[in-house]
């Protein structure tokens, strides 16, 4: 028979055992709860990550779209700038060609003018006019006719490509040549390519004028084979010839006359002083 003391020990042990069981159950529950919470945590973390990603994507996409739009604008601006630079280049190239042509024309005019006034010898002046017409204008057949103030006849004093005797003298005011000399206005054939040589109706006829006084004309009958028509610079050369050639011819004639008179006077003086 168990004593009271033994019963008390057994009761406390039972009580402790119960308490221990409860503790073990509680611990088990806590572990389960912990497991559950960890699972929930993983789930939440996963959801959070998914949520972040889905939140971040449109933002990034928007930023990228904005950047693309910016770059597109920049590209457009660069393309427009390039097109403008290209246009400017084209413009410069055209202007360069124009200036180059203008430069050449001015050089031709300068040389023509320089040569015309480089001598006071009448024959040399005529030769220079011939050279200018051949080399700068590109004519093959032409004549220089001078007006005789007394007879009012225009007579050829120099020719190129045609014999001087073939050029008939022309009365002032008669025909194209006479009209040009009388009016002082240049004449150009309407269609150079269809022109047929006619000494009384030249392809081009330019008056040689000193102010309003015409001293003669240049009559052109044929251009060099490779020259199909007159170029703009030719008209400028004609204008220059109209004035400068006339002055050069007039001055050289005056000089020749004065030289001749001087030598006559000198001859007289020598004769008188002997």
């Amino acid at each position: 028979m168990a004593t009271d003391e033994e019963k008390g020990v057994s009761g406390r042990a039972e009580e402790f055992l119960q308490l221990f069981k409860k503790g073990a159950e509680f611990t088990q529950e806590l572990l389960k709860e912990n497991e559950l919470l960890r699972y929930r945590l993983v789930q939440l973390e996963q959801r959070l990550r998914t949520h972040d990603a889905s939140e971040a994507q449109p933002e990034q996409s928007r930023k990228l779209s904005e950047r693309i739009a910016e770059l597109e604008n920049e590209k457009q601006r660069i393309l427009e700038h390039m097109a403008s630079v290209e246009r400017e280049n084209q413009d410069f190239a055209t202007r360069y060609v124009e200036i180059e042509a203008e430069n050449n024309n001015l050089a031709n005019l300068y040389i023509a003018s320089f040569q015309l006034h480089s001598t006071l010898d009448f024959r040399e002046v005529l030769q220079i006019i011939i050279e200018i017409i051949i080399n700068l204008i590109g004519a093959e057949e032409f004549a220089i006719l001078l007006l005789d103030d007394k007879t009012q006849d225009l007579t050829a004093v120099a020719t190129e490509g045609v014999a001087r005797e073939d050029i008939p003298p022309v009365k002032l005011g008669k025909g194209v040549v006479g009209q040009v000399a009388e009016t002082g206005d240049s004449h150009f054939a309407a269609d150079v390519s269809a022109y047929q040589r006619n000494f009384l109706d030249p392809m081009a006829c330019i008056p040689l004028k000193i102010k309003e006084h015409t001293i003669g004309v240049i009559a052109i009958y044929k251009l060099l084979i490779q020259k199909k028509e007159f170029a703009p610079v030719d008209y400028e050369l004609f204008t220059l010839l109209a004035g400068h050639a006339a002055t050069a011819i007039f001055s050289s004639r005056m000089y020749s006359e004065s030289e001749r008179k001087l030598s006559t006077i000198q001859g007289f003086i020598e004769l008188l002083t002997k």
């Binding site: 180059e100 050449n104 031709n108 051949i134 080399n135 590109g138 093959e140 060099l224 490779q226 020259k227």
Partner: peptide, 28 residues
């Protein structure tokens, strides 16, 4: 040379000229 003087031009080239220009002269 002049454009019409083809024979002279060909002779000059045959004699050893390198090139030719025709009148009226173009600075370019």
């Amino acid at each position: 040379t002049t454009e019409g003087a083809k024979e002279d031009r060909e002779r000059a080239l045959a004699l050893g000229a390198d090139d030719y220009i025709t009148k009226p002269i173009q600075a370019n």
